[in-house]
Structure formats: structure tokens, C-alpha cells
Simulated scan of single mutants.
Amino acid sequence: MTGRELCVSAPGKVILHGEHAVVHGKVALAVGLNLRTFLRLKPMNDNTVLINLPNIGTKLSWTTSDLQALVPSFQESPEHKSVSPSPEQLDILKTFAGISNGTKDTESLAVLAFLYLYLSICGRELPSLEILVWSQLPTGAGLGSSAAYSVCLAAALLTVSGRISHPAQEVIARWTQTELILINGWAFQGEKVIHGNPSGVDNAVGTWGGALRYQAGQISPIERVPELQILLTNTRVPRSTKTLVAGVKDKLLKYPDIMEPVLSSINAISEECQRVLQAAVEGLSKEHYSVLEELIDINQHHLNVIGVGHPSLDRLCQVTASHGLHSKLTGAGGGGCAITLLQPDIEPTVVDAAKQQLSDCGYQCWETSIGAPGVSLHSSSSLPDDITRPLNTA
């Protein structure tokens, strides 16, 4: 076990293009969102394990001897490969943590994911440690907050247990490709604890960052993708992903000759967007941005056609269009979040005016970027000032 303090971070994620169409075998592009989750791990020598999650008001501790009694149920895997949680293991953890069966609140799921990863990764030699996790990501907004949490936990626990290296660093460092694969595998198991049957996209984005192509269960990184400045807006309108997905399926079954071409067009938008991003080796030109803006507009219309729009999103698009900006929903739709592309030479006054109008609608806005780097190890000097304070919003 390493005795060094660690600080790691992982990005959130947004779907750039392809939401809903991806359910029907089409291409989706997922990108790293530069709103990040941060984790600080401090080795202790008092035989306690403490986890502090200030974003959700949770602070719990256990003794290593109490946790040691659970170890026989969490045998180490050959070559330290990740292992899926069994129902029996989850029941053991729920009993240990005093969590009722069927409970799915954020605190309970976060605690279960931590306990599962801690016991499974650290094995027989349980370290005494204190973990603090804080995030710039809102929970439940479809922005990959749980995956960023799982990626941070996996990276920190694998490092402190000696399963992967502690990269040499001056400011920010990353692990090797082989180590990132291991981090991603364990983060996926944390996502299984939280979500049951995740796609694996969110934790892959959290691990590698940048942009990923997802189709028919296959995830592959897209090379040399530039970071794009965006305005991310949360309408704060709750939605049910399950209901929205089912609605698209019903329309497809009822009107296959109408819906299939729309989904194929969304697929073509994803393909064209990938082509543009990869073609911009020396940076995006004005022409590149014009194409990306047109693709955003076309896709937003398609998403309305397949039935996943919402008046709150229509209003958002109207507001940003009045300032010459281009927006589309990201994720499930039916409310939720949207992204607005910001060209590099845009006047700050234009963005400020749009943010103010959106805020007046009751929405929450962030200026940030997509294509952000994946899980990273930080020196204390590289952390943003006052990082535990939530990111400023409009």
C-alpha cells in the first residue's frame, strides 16, 4: 500500500449527437465535459475508513476490523481484473451499511459503490484512509456524475493498493493505457452497483475523456478531437429516460417508414460531426464551426420529430437563437440539459446576455468545454482555487 496522498479528477459527459438513435443501432458521439469530480485520498493510521461526500451531505466512517469481516465475500480476482457485483455481495453490503432493499437514493448508492470497490480492489490488506469527494456536476442531470465518481474511486483505490502505478508528476499526470483499461473496468463495476445495467459509455468517457464513438455496444475513442467551448444549460425539468426511450420505440413500430429515415439521418449527423472534428488537425476553422452549428440545428429538429423535445427546450433554443447561437438537447430530452456551441471569437457580452435570459427562465447555466481530458492525477498546486465551492452559475 502506498502512503502518499492522492488527488484525482474525472470529467462528466454529454452526448454530442446520436441520443435515442443509438438505442436502435445508430452511432452516438459522447464527449468529456469539463465539469469534473475531484477526489482526495489521505492515508491514515488510526484503523478507520472515512468517506466524506459534501455535495450530498454524507459523511460516514467504519473501522478496518469491521470491514475486514466482509473480505471473505469479496475474493481477489486473478490478475486483479474487475469483477461484477453479485446480488449476494450487494445484500451483504446493504446489511452492513443499514440500507434497506429497494432503496435507490443517491447517498445509499454512492456508499454501496464505495464499499464494493474498496473491498474488491484492496483485498485482504485493507488500508486505513480518508476519502473526500466533491463535484462540479449536478446529480441526476444525465451528465455522468455517478460515472465520474466511480472512475475517481477506481483510480485512487487501485493506486493506493499498488495495483497501478503512482505516475510521476509536476502538475497533472495520467496513467498508462493498460492502467486506464483497469481503471475503466473497475469504474464500470461501480456503475453496475449504482445503475444495474449501464452501457459503459459514461465511465469510458470519464476514464479517457476526449470523444468516444458508441455503436451497438462497441466503444472506440476518436483521435485528435479539439476541445469546444459550450454553454451547458439545465432546464431543471425532470424527465424519465425509460419513458422517453419507450415512446421513441412505439413511434418506430407504428411509423417505421417515417421514423427509420429520421434515425438514419441522426446517424449521418454523428458521422459527419466525427469527420469534421477529426479533419480539424490544426484547429477548427470558421467553416468547420458553421457545419457544426448546422448539424446541431438539424439534429434538434430531428429530436423534436421523434418526440423527445419539450417546451422548456424549445424556449432555450429560441433564447440562444436570438443571440445568434445554436443549441440542442443532450441526453434523454423531455427537459433535462442542452448544449450551445460557442465560437472562439464570440463577444463575452453576447454570452452574458444569453445566460441572463436563460437564468430569467429559471434555468441553470455553465460556461465550460467538451472534449475534456479523462481521469487525471493532480498535484495540490494544480487544483482550482476554492475547489470545494460549487461552480459559479448564471
Rank of each mutant, 00 (worst) to 15 (best):
Q215I: 04
L263C: 11
K254E: 15
T207P: 00
C365D: 08
S270Q: 02
R36D: 05
R389F: 11
A204M: 11
A332N: 07
D360E: 11
Q364I: 15
A168D: 12
D386Q: 13
P344Y: 03
L41W: 10
R213Q: 13
N267K: 07
G200D: 09
A21P: 06
E125V: 11
Q136V: 04
S199K: 05
A155H: 07
T233H: 07
H323I: 08
N304W: 06
R174Q: 15
P138E: 04
R4H: 15
Y255G: 00
S146E: 03
S290L: 13
V171L: 14
V237N: 03
N304C: 02
I346H: 02
A141Q: 08
A155N: 08
K94F: 07
L29G: 01
D105R: 01
S86A: 06
R174P: 00
I306D: 01
S161I: 12
I164V: 14
A372C: 02
S285R: 11
L115M: 08
E191N: 04
E19Q: 10
N34H: 13
V305C: 09
V205F: 06
S9Q: 08
I266W: 10
A321Y: 02
P78K: 06
P87F: 09
K104P: 00
S73M: 10
L119S: 09
V350G: 05
Y255A: 09
K286H: 09
G324F: 10
Q68N: 12
I296T: 14
F114W: 03
H302W: 12
A279G: 15
S220G: 08
A21K: 12
G25R: 12
V262E: 08
G283K: 06
A147Q: 03
S145F: 03
M44G: 08
T103A: 10
P348S: 04
S145I: 08
P54S: 07
A246I: 01
A216T: 14
L157W: 01
T393H: 13
V308Y: 01
L157S: 02
N34A: 15
Q218G: 05
L126I: 05
D386I: 04
P226E: 04
T388F: 07
L377M: 12
L109Q: 06
G185Q: 11
G162N: 09
G98E: 00
S150T: 12
E227S: 15
P256L: 05
G209D: 03
H17M: 13
S381G: 07
K13S: 01
W134N: 13
R275S: 13
F188Y: 15
I346Q: 01
V205A: 10
A204G: 04
N299C: 13
A168M: 06
V276E: 06
